[in-house]
């Protein structure tokens, strides 16, 4: 079988330092994106565990698989979870979700959790689209912009380029920075044409690094336009898979004259994490209401 350079590694993680989490209120968020699915488990809003896997052909299976990984890590079962929020484009396909919330609302909340209350602009770069989100100090969405469904400028486009050049996707960012001078960005907006252009550039004698630089630059410019349309207010944070591509992140920072906040969290879990937080908040509100009516 041919090597698949686009394949990024699936991850799962359990918080080793957290104690007594079993006694807290357990909420989960499941984010089914076009290319990846995440499940996050919180106990009283403290991060217990998460899993990030590739979205398969069947969204429902992906939801189950991601959740199963979390259960494997924690020894829990579905009935132990007090509230589950489904989010992402496949949110309606989370069979065990108590509620669905859009990824826009969830990413804002997740970024707020990860980066703190100073974050105002969030760029979510997913597999299939990009979103620029403004939120307030509580992580509530104030406005947002979303680009059209198009593989160029998104994770899927990056995967195509990885395969085309035979460069493992995790190395793209670093290698794109290994050029002395950025070549002009690849102009094609469409990944289908970008493919042709990449082929053309390679024949012209460009190095892989130069092509990657051009592609990352094009992606950054595309995203910068979206960010500008929604106005850039600091602090700024990037979520989603492409946040891991330093070549794109650095270029966005340069074009927008900002520094993106850093965190040890996996940027890909922001949506599912936000969902779990929102699930917890919702549960608390419901409990409060129930107490009032009693």
């Amino acid at each position: 079988m041919a090597e698949e350079f686009w394949r990024w590694s699936e991850t799962s993680w359990r918080n080793p330092d957290l104690e007594g989490w079993q006694k807290g209120t357990l909420t989960a968020g499941v984010d089914i994106g076009s290319t990846s699915t995440q499940a996050v488990l919180l106990s009283d809003k403290r991060l217990v565990a998460y899993a990030s896997i590739r979205t398969g052909a069947n969204s429902k299976d992906s939801a189950h698989n991601a959740m199963r990984k979390v259960f494997d890590l924690t020894g829990l079962r579905q009935e132990d979870i007090a509230f589950t929020v489904g989010t992402g484009y496949g949110r309606v396909n989370v069979p065990f979700a108590d509620k669905t919330i859009t990824e826009i609302t969830c990413h804002a909340k997740g970024a707020h959790y990860i980066y703190g209350s100073t974050v105002r602009t969030i760029l979510d770069m997913g597999g299939q689209d990009c979103k620029a989100i403004h939120c307030d100090e509580t992580g509530r969405v104030v406005s947002f912009m979303m680009n059209d469904k198009c593989a160029a400028g998104t994770g899927r486009g990056m995967e195509v380029i990885a395969d085309l050049l035979g460069v493992p996707i995790e190395e793209i960012g670093e290698r794109s920075l290994q050029v002395e001078k950025d070549p002009p960005p690849i102009t094609s907006q469409c990944v289908v044409f970008a493919k042709t252009e990449v082929g053309h550039l390679m024949r012209e004698g460009w190095t892989k690094e130069q092509v990657l630089a051009a592609y990352c630059e094009a992606m950054a410019e595309r995203v910068a336009r979206l960010l500008r349309q929604n106005e850039m207010v600091e602090d700024f944070a990037i979520t989603g898979g492409i946040a891991k591509n330093i070549g794109v992140v650095k270029r966005i920072e340069r074009l927008m004259h900002v520094k993106a906040l850093q965190s040890d969290y996996d940027s890909q879990i922001a949506g599912a994490l936000g969902g779990a937080v929102l699930g917890y908040d919702l549960l608390q509100r419901r409990k409060k209401r129930a107490r009032k009516t009693e």
């Binding site: 859009t102 826009i104 609302t105 509530r140 969405v141 104030v142 947002f144 908040d281």
Partner: peptide
């Protein structure tokens, strides 16, 4: 998402 935003909560 716009409706969620206008609703303020979820």
């Amino acid at each position: 998402a716009f409706v969620e935003m206008l609703e303020g909560g979820t």
